[in-house]
Design a protein around this nucleic acid. Structure first.
Lengths: 213, 213
DNA sequence: CCAATTACTAAACACTGTTTAGTAATTTTC
DNA sequence: GAAAATTACTAAACAGTGTTTAGTAATTGG
């Protein structure tokens, strides 16, 4: 086998691996993770179910691959904000970007932050978590920068970052599960679900603004 | 069949229904929800799997029953705080109770706030959600009471309640999934996981205190 | 040209939730 | 008290799942 053919084969093998991932992603988004079978993925790419296991050790490994992809997507949502020079404006932008990401990719959000399995894997695999850690570091650095401008006086940046992450994550999770819809819409008169979410976010921003000085 | 025997039979039938629920609950806590089979529940109560279906329509109906039970347990955690007269102290107590509930019953917490299925059911079944709504109303009433003492000036109590719920829920969820452990312990030096959680809660309390006046 | 490797799959295994058909035991009716 | 009806339960099957095994064609290297 000459080198050109060998290369083409390797490339094809990686293509198929990617094809499996893409099929899995679209099926997960369509039917949810639990309701997507290996057999369905196999049918979508027109291979036998057993072939999938030549490219991924098991179903979890597919989930882990999507997990990594998802975090890269989230971080890319943040990187657009590097242009914003004022750190508090950047912080607000990150909040909006986080919400937007959660709303636009509800299933990926579930995968990243609500499912047990992917995290169990990450816990045993410290090197794999780069992007997730980076997302938090971007946040805590921004918080620290805000402090140099007189915001958040007397707070530990790491601690406050956890509070902020908790709030944003809590809001997105409540939205994702439907709790916000159930409890919220009945109580927040004249607001639809998106408006309620925005209003809650704006309220939190005001809370943070009051911490100045 | 005389009345006494009829009554005993009805009672026995309800007992068995409860037995199934208890077996399911303990197995869910032990092995997690996805890994608990109807067959395992049946074996635990020493009946055949088919018998379960005489008492519950399907597996989801068992989950829904545990969902209702779980919310009652959560509300009972709050009701102890009726003695606390100062509303802000009561609010802090609710936060601590919420965290305590989430830590002591991680699987029930998942069931109540992180799983898709139970909420889908509640969405189609408006009357079944009493306890969940009540928990939120207790919160928003407490926030409103705080305002009469000069806290949270200029905030909508409902909106601020959503912020508070989001923060508490986000913190508990990040803890429950392991995200807090992964991101947190490496960064918060000399704090173990429980201390990190407490410290984050305390930071949030300070944030709320700064909103006074 | 033959042997070795590759890429793939049919079929099986051990599970899952759920349904069906049927069996004993009990209760009601005559 | 015997026959009929109801109750409480289950064995076995069905259709689905993730995963493994054994084997088959095709391609490649010597």
């Amino acid at each position: 086998m000459d080198m050109g053919v060998a290369e083409r084969k390797v490339r094809h093998k990686e293509d198929l691996k990617k094809e499996i991932l893409d099929a899995a992603k679209s099926l997960f988004s369509e039917k949810g993770f639990e309701s997507t079978s290996i057999r369905a993925i196999a049918e979508k790419i027109e291979y036998s179910p057993a072939t999938i296991y030549l490219y991924y050790k098991d179903k979890n490994e597919i989930v882990h691959a999507l997990h990594r992809e998802g975090f890269k997507l989230l971080v890319s949502h943040f990187e657009v904000l590097n242009n914003v020079s004022h750190p508090f404006e950047r912080l607000k932008g990150m909040g909006r970007a986080y919400i937007q990401f959660a709303l636009q990719n509800p299933d990926i959000y579930r995968l990243l932050f609500m499912m047990e399995e992917p995290l169990k894997h990450v816990a045993n695999c410290f090197e794999e978590w780069d992007e997730g850690d980076r997302a938090f570091d971007i946040l805590s650095k921004t918080v620290a920068e805000c402090q140099t401008l007189g915001f958040f006086n007397g707070f530990e940046p790491i601690q406050l970052s956890f509070v902020i992450w908790s709030t944003m994550h809590g809001l997105c999770t409540l939205r994702n599960t439907g709790h916000l819809a159930h409890v919220g819409v009945a109580r927040a008169n004249n607001l639809d679900l998106d408006q309620l979410m925005t209003a809650t976010f704006e309220t939190f921003v005001i809370v943070l603004e009051k911490l100045k000085g």
